[in-house]
């Protein structure tokens, strides 16, 4: 891969594990300097950074609970000090636990836990990177949504609502920021296996799911990383307000 993102600074929230790790990797492979943000597990973040470096990429791990606005402001300042430049690419990827609840079991706190990751954190992060992007008259904001927005599985409304909010956010921010040369898009991955699924008995769920996938198999995390790298590049500079499905054809946008 060659350097379509050479010289760019990218911030991937929740970048140490799961899809975030592979998004960080794909952006680094395309030449970006990647900030791998993590909340708790420094060892995973360090491992990811080491792995990216061993593959010829540039990355650094930075801790911050992105649900806390003061911490977000601190994170962005640290990035600007460390790299001597401002964030060009923001990937709102971080998620927390994704428990399943029926409506009867749900309460406002349970919904808020999802909105913290999918709405609050992206808002704080976007506000914090906007001055730099507006000054440069360019920027990329990529929100990691999900196929659940369209599939809307039962007993999962907490998560579906969080991911659906990201779509409205993507469109609204795209409209607001278009004239500043800043694009805002979403990626909607399918059911892709990552660390969080380890140790779970998913055999039946996967078998059932794969039957619905036209391509006949689950995707790989790098499929998502590559889609993000494309949206972050000049190749997508007239694409804004869109949601790109990376789900083997499970859902078609109409």
């Amino acid at each position: 891969m060659n350097g379509k993102l050479d010289g760019k600074i990218a911030l991937v929230t929740g970048g140490s594990r799961g899809l975030g790790k592979w998004i960080s990797y794909a952006l680094a492979q395309a030449g970006a300097k990647v900030v791998v943000n993590y909340a708790n597990q420094q060892s995973f973040a360090d491992e990811t950074v080491k792995w990216i470096a061993s593959e010829g990429g540039e990355a650094i791990a930075m801790q911050a609970d992105i649900r806390d606005e003061a911490k977000v402001i601190g994170l962005i300042q640290s990035i600007e000090e460390y790299y001597g430049g401002q964030v060009d690419i923001l990937v709102n990827n971080a998620t927390g636990p994704q428990p399943r609840y029926s409506i009867e079991e749900s309460n406002w706190e349970i919904y808020l836990e999802q909105l913290d990751f999918h709405v609050k954190a992206p808002l704080y992060l976007t506000k914090a990177v906007l001055p730099g992007m507006k000054k440069k008259k360019q920027g990329r904001i990529i929100n990691i949504s999900s196929e659940v927005v369209q599939l809307a599985p039962p007993n999962f409304s907490n998560y579906v609502i969080g991911k659906t909010a990201m779509i409205g956010m993507t469109r609204s921010w795209a409209n607001e920021l278009g004239s500043n040369g800043i694009t805002v898009n979403a990626v909607a991955p399918g059911f892709i296996l990552v660390e969080r699924h380890e140790g779970q008995d998913l055999e039946a769920r996967i078998a059932d799911y794969v039957k619905r996938v036209p391509l006949g198999h689950q995707g790989e995390p790098l499929d998502v990383g590559n889609a993000v790298a494309y949206l972050a590049s000049e190749d997508a500079k007239f694409v804004t307000g869109q949601c790109l499905n990376v789900s083997g054809g499970v859902v078609f946008d109409v």
Partner: peptide, 16 residues
């Protein structure tokens, strides 16, 4: 090959 897990998708290139 970046899009080998994408089919039936329509990418809108319209400036929003």
């Amino acid at each position: 090959s970046y899009a080998d897990y994408i089919t039936g998708e329509i990418v809108e290139v319209n400036g929003g």
